[in-house]
Simulated scan of single mutants.
Amino acid sequence: MLSVDRTGCGSGWYGHCHQVLTWFLSRWHAAADAARDMVDEAIGGRFHSWTSPGTVLVDDIAERLALSVRPDVVLNPSEAAPDHLERWLAVRASVPWPDAPDSNSDEPVTPSRDGAAESIRAFDGAIDPGRAEGLLTALELVRSDAAQGASLTLERLRGWQQYVLGSPHPPSFRDSVAFAKGGRERYGIAPDTPARLDACLAESASDGRRPLPLISRAARAYLDVCFFHPFDDGNARAGFLTLIFVLAREGVALDDVSLLRRVSFQADSPQDPPTLIRYIDLHLAHTRQRAASHRRATD
């Protein structure tokens, strides 16, 4: 934390932190090369410029370094930090997804205005015009892919996320544990985590053998992206685009998305998925009503 305080988390501050931690391990007789490797493994790309690390993240890194120096120390399982990705998958399996409100949500609808684009211009544009521009470009790609009936995959998410983040290349799936909500949620990582996400995303498609309401599939895909947390940044935006894609692939768009972008959901809350489903249903019902009013007014 001394490095954080002294550098103010400015651009590239974590490089200095890496150096200090390497010195610390060397002080305790770790060979220079081994010390660098231990710090690389503990930090693993989890620090970012201009971002102060949360207490949970700092504690986890300190714990990893301590175990590197004293490999004989084993954590009590009851003291291990929970894996909120696994908690989400347990909740996911228990949610009554077929019980979504039956309000003709699966029927195509063309709104009188573009709620997603308006939200991006107002909300993201106020944060950073460049952020809004990238997200609008990604939105166009999302809708183009949806119009072609494309499959929802991690690779497709990566293609959208390149524009969301303004990256020169599609970002890779994270390679270390991720944190969100100020460190209160921790998402684990394993060799098969990307494949598990792909399997979950595939369930967003309509399946006549196991029919599931569109709004349930859209909500579930949104939460899958949020809690698998595939990217180092921009996962909430990735989840939002995923929801828009699942709806658009079946001819549905919304004229308002405010409830979908202003509320935070918890990975281990069984009440949150039904809440998100209700929000989508509410926006969709209002969109249908306003679209019908607009048609009557222009006839």
Rank of each mutant, 00 (worst) to 15 (best):
80 A>W: 00
208 G>Y: 00
93 A>V: 06
128 D>R: 05
293 S>W: 13
235 N>H: 07
201 L>K: 12
86 E>Y: 00
274 P>G: 13
27 R>H: 13
38 M>F: 14
123 F>S: 15
220 R>T: 09
243 L>G: 12
25 L>S: 07
102 D>L: 05
261 R>C: 03
111 P>G: 08
170 P>A: 03
192 D>W: 08
133 E>S: 12
219 A>H: 00
284 L>M: 09
198 D>L: 04
243 L>Y: 01
105 S>V: 11
239 G>K: 04
28 W>D: 14
284 L>I: 13
130 G>A: 04
136 L>D: 04
60 D>R: 02
140 E>C: 15
238 A>I: 05
55 T>D: 11
83 D>E: 05
147 A>C: 03
32 A>Y: 07
71 P>D: 07
21 L>H: 09
261 R>D: 10
78 S>Y: 08
265 F>D: 00
103 S>T: 14
92 R>M: 01
107 E>K: 06
50 W>F: 12
273 P>S: 05
233 D>I: 11
134 G>I: 03
54 G>R: 05
87 R>Q: 03
54 G>P: 02
231 F>E: 01
127 I>S: 02
258 S>Q: 13
8 G>R: 04
99 D>S: 08
183 G>C: 09
173 F>I: 10
196 R>Y: 08
258 S>P: 10
298 T>I: 12
85 L>K: 01
180 A>F: 09
172 S>V: 14
133 E>R: 06
74 V>A: 13
220 R>V: 00
10 G>Y: 03
48 H>T: 08
190 A>G: 15
201 L>C: 05
227 F>A: 00
68 S>Y: 07
123 F>M: 15
97 W>F: 01
257 V>E: 13
279 Y>K: 04
14 Y>L: 07
256 D>K: 02
187 Y>L: 00
197 L>T: 04
284 L>D: 11
110 T>R: 02
35 A>D: 03
80 A>G: 02
225 V>A: 00
294 H>F: 13
197 L>W: 09
27 R>M: 05
75 L>D: 14
61 I>S: 09
273 P>A: 04
211 P>E: 07
55 T>W: 07
62 A>R: 08
65 L>P: 07
251 G>H: 04
64 R>T: 13
36 R>L: 15
14 Y>M: 11
170 P>R: 08
13 W>I: 10
71 P>F: 02
141 L>A: 08
170 P>D: 09
240 F>H: 15
72 D>G: 12
179 F>V: 02
